[in-house]
């Protein structure tokens, strides 16, 4: 991520230190993860120590300090999905991809994450891949969906 793009994001928030989280969210949104240089640039522009930025980047769930795979798989572990068997969906996805939540496979194909409620409880259990929702899943259905991604 080049520093021009980072600067543009910072300028959008008028460079106030209180907007730190909003700036990081925008960088995460555009770049899908927060590279070290980006954090340093933000710290320099906002006059905020890097330790505070790290504190925030590791505290909130929206941020990732490592690059993400081509497909972001979010498995809903909300209560409604949980009672409808979300654990089995997660187990199936873990077995197929060989990765655990928070990880990315070596080919950079999938990144797996669990989320606490996507709010489509009528469709539970739900898995979201790159923003597309797949609902009413069974373990077998989960395999079919995941195998359809390149």
């Amino acid at each position: 991520m080049d520093s021009d793009r980072i600067d543009r994001i910072i300028d959008r928030h008028q460079g106030e230190p209180s907007s730190l989280i909003q700036i990081l969210l925008d960088i995460q949104g555009e770049n899908h993860w927060l590279p070290r240089e980006a954090l340093e640039r933000v710290g320099e522009r906002l006059q905020v120590p890097i330790s505070r930025i790290q504190h925030i980047a590791t505290f909130y769930k929206a941020f990732s300090l490592v690059p993400k795979g081509r497909h972001e798989v979010h498995i809903c572990m909300g209560t409604a999905c949980h009672v409808r068997g979300a654990r089995r969906i997660l187990d199936t996805a873990q077995d197929l991809t060989g990765i655990k939540p928070g990880e990315t496979d070596l080919e950079m194909k999938f990144s797996l994450e669990t989320v606490n409620c996507l709010g489509c409880c009528a469709l539970g259990p739900v898995m979201e891949i790159d923003g597309k929702t797949h609902g009413k899943l069974s373990p077998a259905g989960t395999l079919d969906v995941l195998k359809s991604y390149e």
Partner: peptide, 25 residues
């Protein structure tokens, strides 16, 4: 509008306010 960056505890009033100030909630 301030977007929350994903922390359940920020629904708690004082944590929400700290987050709004741009810090860890």
């Amino acid at each position: 509008v301030h977007k929350g960056a994903g922390a359940f505890v920020c629904g708690e009033s004082t944590a929400l306010m700290t987050a709004l100030e741009g810090r860890v909630g």
